[in-house]
Amino acid sequence: MHRFANPTRFLRLAAAVLPFSAAVAALCLGAGLVWGLFFAPPDYQQGDTVRIMFIHVPAAMMAMGVYAGMAISSAIALIWRHAIADLIAKASAPIGATFCFICLLTGSLWGKPMWGTWWVWDARLTSMLIMLFIYLGYMALWQAFDDQTKAARAAAILALVGAINLPVIKFSVEWWNTLHQPASLITMDGPKIHSSLLWPLLLMIVGFGAYYLTVLIFRVRAEVHQRRTRMLRMAQADRHAAMQAAE
């Protein structure tokens, strides 16, 4: 694992992976889009609104998946002081938050024709909203520190505390939801996914995963370069100070 802690080596690996992940993302998302919008049959219950699922469900899955990845890399960063794991966690957060937001937005747009209102405090939507708050808190904590090493460790602790808490939150929200669910509402558990809808959904999920990897590589690359700039500047400032002291 420490082989990839070296930024240069990591950048080389990332550059090798990038074309593949970008190609997979473009192909799968493109094919999923065409299939989902044009060829997949409308659901017998939900009609054409089921096409929203092809973007809603992958976004929800990846929002959770990205958090899991963020928590794992935070643990690696804390335990082994791994230099790149920090940056992977940091770079993941805006991507996960975007997925969260897409999931909420499409959920709302799906809810309007299905439930008759733009927002229902459905267990899954509510958990996703809380997850978005946790992502935002994590990103804000990174921003709050000047010292990047401290920011990295604080954010890693928060990511892990959040990871422990998220299942509890999810469970409690589900419990709360069963208490308050009015019987007249249709729940989103509804659609039994027909196999003709499964393939475009699968394509979209793979596409979202590859998209995450692609964007992650760009963002980690940006972080590596920014860190190098900071270190060079610090070295220059030190040298400058030393020269002034000598005079």
């Binding site: 054409d48 964007v215 940006a222």
Partner: peptide, 29 residues
């Protein structure tokens, strides 16, 4: 089937956000 507004907005905004994030990431890199 009458749901065009919802389906197209979902896809439109979703895809637009994904593209915007990609472009922003490439730009900062």
């Amino acid at each position: 089937g009458g749901y065009g507004l919802y389906v197209w907005t979902s896809w439109g905004v979703g895809v637009a956000l994904l593209i915007a994030l990609l472009i922003q990431s490439i730009a900062i890199a």
